[in-house]
Amino acid sequence: MLRRYSVHLILPSLGGLLVYSAYEELLGLYTLSVLMFMGVNIILSSSLNLVNGYMGEFSCGHAGFMCVGAYVSSLLGVWLFAKDRVFGAPFLDPDYAIYAFPFIILIGGIAAAIAGLLVAIPSYKTRGDYLAIITIAANYIIISSIENIGSIGGSRGFMGMKRVIGSMEDIADLPWMPIWVFIFTVGTIWVLRRYVSSTFGKGVSAICQDEVAAEIMSVNTNKMKTISFMLSSGLAGIGGGLFAYIIGYVNPGSFTILKSTEVLVMVYLGGMGSLSGSVLSAILFTFLLELLRPLGIFKWVIIPLMLVIMMQFRPEGIMGKRELGDIFPRLKRFYRFK
């Protein structure tokens, strides 16, 4: 009984606690935004782990897909529900924003998934280092395209998302962003976990370990690659959309290779092919960034240095390939997450 329902109990109560404390303003705005960024980082690192960990590719352009999601959901939300310089009056009654918001984020994710084809299709023929270049190029192409569209602000960026959130809060005064970040974060891990633990999804690990054997043993490798790349970039797009609405402002400069590198750091810190590792490292990494904030630019010397040192002594990351349940088998008695 406990095993079966513990996750069903823990997650809602955790979410409820978060929402309650946000509502009662027990947490400061700063703490709350750090928690929300933590959620976004969990989405980013676990989705990249699907490609870099489970599938064994080396994608360094995750921020590009995040950027697509962020822009699509921001533009869509503002066009539909907010008064804006670019789009003029809202297209729909802002009262509907409260219902449409999750769909807006999802559509951003779908757009990013389609952008994922930019990498998925070349991956049929190329692997490894060559694919890494393609992902870098894809990241630059996405950023550069947006910089060149002057009507949505170009490199200056785009804003107005706070007004969408505002009209949601007008209808029901709830901390909407923490709620949705929490839901999407849990949803992401849940989707990924189900995917990689199904026999279907294990085809991805088969590709990682021996692509020739996978194809010969009837795994449709091209299809699996397409699905995995699209899922990974789609989830990154969702993360990007949430990121944009948390900050209330997007500009291409936030999604450069540096951001992609940040996500890479989280994936390898946690361990390739371990979802719980990715979650753990995203939490740790976000904390670390905030902890080292007073150091200013030295932060970006210390974090890479720590990773370099870690690579020397524990290159497989915190968790390696294992999940939480593999390290503490007793935990398995208390929860089941599927």
Binding site: R194, Y195, T199, F200, S205, N220
Partner: peptide, 28 residues
């Protein structure tokens, strides 16, 4: 050419990929 990081059982299971009869959305 076995898949060396998968269990023996999973090696056999994945080789039934073409007749799984379900796809991505069913697995989610």
């Amino acid at each position: 050419r076995l898949w060396n990081d998968m269990t023996v059982l999973d090696n056999i299971r994945v080789a039934q990929h073409y007749r799984l009869g379900y796809g991505f959305f069913h697995s989610i």
